[in-house]
Design a binder for these strands. Structure first.
Lengths: 234, 234
DNA sequence: TAGATTGTTAATCGATTAACAATC
DNA sequence: TAGATTGTTAATCGATTAACAATC
């Protein structure tokens, strides 16, 4: 096999290599998946981009481009097989192979995620929880043991866990991330609103509720500002 | 006042009017806010875009552009006042005025959000919960009453609640959204992975955990695919 | 066949980044 | 003053959208 690397192209040091699919498309795939599973449940076996787009509020071309990334092939005039589409998305996203994960921070949010059985359908199984609080150690939350944080790195290594979920308060998050990295964890799903400092090869995704909240409250505030102005104008 | 509307410009029917700040900038503001509050706690009163950028992994120009939207004015050479910046972001996002919210779906996730005291610092107060399950009615979760869903619309109207949070299973979400709209709710924070059908003037933001999960599992799957290929190549 | 839909290439649009002038 | 940093205008880059050819 000959690998042709164009040396004039900068190698993007300090960044993850560019994904072969745009991030927004990737984020839309689960929505298609959900929608298609619903269709399948209704006994619908065939669909087109226009129909999907109509129901999800997207234009047909965008749907087509998104789905193409999964490698699916459609037929002019008839569209796509719903079953094939579902399969293609699941394979593409790696939802067929379960990722086992450790969760750190057994507070309200952590408990909620531990109890979220639906995740197992999407390739995620949280196998244990960790917490710094000795009062929580040894407890079971939604059938998962809560272990002391000190055991995380060792256990992660021995069980070859690749995914870590952080649901601690922001102050604790960096220390937890460090432990995870020590344990050989490859990817971190971070619910704490802090920028984690981790080695370059670690995949980090932030789930920042405050980002969404910001957008919502800005839009609400603007709406009321505007209506105030309208009143003044009258 | 003369309002000059260029009639050749299409009026973007079927869309929210364009925001005066790019969505990505808006989503980054809470991160700056968090970071700046930390700085202030450390007694730091002055900072620059380069420093912020270094700590948050952004380039200085981007930081500057983002912050400019809040109306903050900096000084060449010295940068910005941390206190002023925090104030500017909070005002801009409307975090000074509390938004009262109703939450529907008192399951794991709903319970977690009800217990998240931190929200109150960011302009959000969840004042009551609703659930379809009669067993939950009359309970109190984190000092908030759980009420029957039928009372939502009427109560929302009487208390002029503007924000609704949906943490129900996907099947129930649309019906809940309908009730919220009936009660005069203006904005919906939707944690259920479905596309809600609501009147055009309703602000909807989806918090889709599966989107993030998709990105994570795709990246992990790709990583292992790649390392498999490398092994084959050897 | 005719028409609808897929797949693909080109144009547009918006956010990011770069370049530079203004200012303390 | 000189140098660092802000503020602003222009260039770049990537995702979305449009146009069109291919195909069932």
């Amino acid at each position: 096999m000959v690998i042709d690397i164009n040396l004039s192209t900068p190698l993007r040091v300090g960044r993850q290599e560019a994904p072969s699919i745009p991030q927004p498309s990737l984020a839309r795939l689960p929505q298609y998946h959900h929608y298609l599973v619903d269709l399948a449940a209704k006994g619908i076996t065939q669909t087109t981009c226009s129909v999907i787009g109509r129901d999800l509020g997207l234009i047909p071309v965008q749907v087509r481009k998104d789905l193409q990334h999964t490698g699916i092939i459609g037929r002019p005039k008839t569209g796509y097989s719903v079953a094939e589409l579902i399969q293609a998305i699941e394979t593409f996203l790696g939802w067929n192979n379960i990722n086992e994960a450790f969760l750190v921070g057994a507070g309200n949010l952590g408990t909620a995620l531990l109890g979220h059985e639906r995740f197992s359908k999407f390739g995620l199984r949280i196998v244990a929880a960790f917490d710094r609080d000795p009062a929580k150690e040894g407890q079971w939350i939604h059938e998962k043991a809560v272990l002391p944080l000190e055991e995380l790195a060792d256990l992660a290594q021995r069980m070859s866990i690749h995914l870590g979920i952080i649901t601690t308060p922001p102050e604790a998050a960096q220390a937890v991330a460090d432990e995870m990295v020590k344990g050989g964890i490859q990817a971190i799903w971070n619910f704490a609103p802090v920028k984690l400092k981790v080695p370059e090869h670690i995949i980090v995704h932030n789930e920042d509720l405050y980002s969404t909240l910001a957008t919502l409250s800005w839009k609400l505030a603007r709406r009321f500002r505007v209506s105030l102005k309208e009143k003044e104008a009258v």
